[in-house]
Write a protein that binds this DNA or RNA. Structure first.
Lengths: 341, 341
DNA sequence: CTGAAAGCGCTAACAT
DNA sequence: ATGTTAGCGCTTTCAG
């Protein structure tokens, strides 16, 4: 019934050559004469030969496989990065092994172990919001497995990173809000133990300071990168009757949470509360009103990360870690565009 | 520098036992005495032993790996399904190998070959909008690799499928529109060579027929499942001055395309044109106006698919293909809710 | 309870 | 140009 897959040696036997010859022929090795190669390929095709990549990996000591770990997947930012990584992987003949940490540091750790066990040739990771112990990453590095961090990166020296100019982006946005006339500005800051949170907060502070505005500590709220957090943070402020005029949210989902709260409360954007978020998405323009944002190019992020990773895989020992920062772009739509008086 | 990974035999040598003993101990095989097991585990931990999954797979002839192929990833429907599949995979100790076909049948074919070559234990696939040649799937089946199709499935008998009640869902939606008073109803139908397109179109027809409404062929437009198609289809109708009152779109992205066109043209939803789409998403409620939809549970879809796949993997020869249909759910928000007169 | 033998399917190094 | 040898790291018999 379930016919066993054809192997190199099956082909070899039929053609009365050695498995090595078949192996080489199938990989277009110049050792083998054109005729034999053709003959072998023809038979392989007929027999529907599929190489056993597992065996190949074990023997060749490379898997042609790249591990990717992200905290979430059903969010535009990450799914877009993933899509790009898959595309680039395909072009370069690498298979991608994706793992989702679900913002859980323990799970992230487990995934890294699995990727190591699967002998991936390299790893790309965007760490969880709660990753504070970096041991596992040092293990990876110690083992000589190329790794590059993307967007959310650990505070570690001598690692390759591709990040966004979070500080500059946040600054730009808040500066623009201030120029629109806003003074009571809040920041829903996510978690500031992680680089993106910390840097965005810093950009917020920079702008406030530059324009001599006071930072109200009640308006700098930490708590996460998701919709729930945005919702709760806004609700809290509302209940305390302590609403600002403007909010910079640390991510798009957080802004969505604000939209939800605002809608439930019967308030209006931007009349009662205006906002902008970090991170672009294809559907922001369809929101009510269209949400402005600080755009971070997921394409550039992925491209650079993959490029560095490939370089690292090739050079191995001689490779020097690289750190790239991607510039941001203010995208103005229906929010953060109205003169406030 | 780059220390070679610790292997079973490294541990075996140090402890003066055989690799077999170590192998068994590490997998809690009852053969090995508790003391030896403990001793071995302790050393393995100290040495940071990581099993080589490649070697294990080759030897054990199962990879504990499941291949998944979807046409897109940066779309809520698929990224949500993927997220669910990853979760279930994790719980059952299976690694997921995800491949993206990018709606390209040729690429899909290539991915299947790769998954076969990687010796995945099973495959889940949602086919591309242009897949018409099913040979590759028959190859998979012939090789005895468990495969289950999800949402978009080929017309093949004796395969396992998990689909949505597309016909019933479309019917419900159009029926509701009719009860709201709409008569001039269009359907942006995607591609009807594939089951989801065909069934949804049929549901549309069923409803029109039941209520004695005439189907205007100009208003049944095919072309794809993406935003561009929705945009173009609407623009075409507008230019021809042939706008319907109501549209059922085959997917959410298509509806987004309509929103975009409507906005550009300065029209209003639902006053000038009302609509509903097939497929839910977490951001529809934030659209302007909030978009109603026919909800298809991605959770049920994924759960059932994985369950069937696991069953197939376990039973192998004795397994009988199963076909499951998930019920849909009309979710009414800001569209398709206004009485039309 | 433990281990020796054999092999999974492939490739790299070294003959011939 | 082709083949032989050896081995990747692990697991599955099967003997002791």
């Amino acid at each position: 019934m379930k016919s066993k897959p054809v192997t190199l040696s099956d082909i070899a036997k039929i053609l009365n050559v050695s498995t090595v010859t078949v192996s080489k022929a199938l990989r277009n090795h110049p050792d083998i004469s054109p005729e034999t190669t053709k003959k072998i390929k023809k038979l392989a095709e007929e027999l529907e030969y599929t190489p056993n990549l597992i065996a190949r990996s074990l023997s060749a000591r490379r898997s042609n496989t790249i591990g990717v770990i992200v905290p979430k997947i059903a969010h535009f930012f990450f799914s877009s990065i993933i899509e790009n990584i898959y595309k680039i992987g395909l072009e370069n003949n690498y298979e991608i092994i994706l793992a989702v940490s679900q913002e859980d540091a323990e799970l992230e750790r487990k995934h890294i172990h699995t990727l190591l066990a699967m002998k991936v040739d390299g790893i790309i990771v965007s760490i969880t919001q709660q990753t504070t112990n970096y041991d596992i990453f040092e293990t990876v590095i110690k083992r000589g497995i190329p790794i590059v961090f993307i967007d959310r990166v650990p505070y570690l020296s001598n690692i390759s990173t591709v990040t966004v100019d979070d500080r500059g982006g946040a600054f730009k946005a808040v500066e623009h809000a201030i120029k629109m006339g806003y003074k009571k500005i809040a920041h829903f800051a996510g978690y500031t133990n992680i680089n993106i949170g910390k840097e965005r907060l810093q950009g917020f502070k920079d702008a406030m300071e530059k324009y001599g505005l006071e930072i109200n500590p009640d308006w700098v709220i930490e708590g996460g990168f998701g919709e729930d957090y945005g919702y709760n943070a806004f609700m809290k402020l509302y209940r305390e009757n302590n609403l600002p005029e403007f909010i910079l949210t640390v991510t798009f989902p957080v802004a969505l949470g604000v939209y939800k709260a605002v809608k439930e409360l019967g308030l209006r954007i931007p009349e009662d509360i205006d906002l902008i978020c970090f991170g672009n998405s294809n559907i922001q323009e369809f929101l009510c009103p269209p949400l402005s944002c600080i755009d971070q190019s997921t394409t550039l992020l992925s491209q650079n990360a993959m490029e560095i990773l490939f370089e690292n895989i090739q050079k191995q020992e001689e490779f020097e870690p690289r750190n790239i920062t991607i510039e941001t772009n203010l995208v103005l739509r229906g929010t953060c565009t109205r003169k406030h008086t």
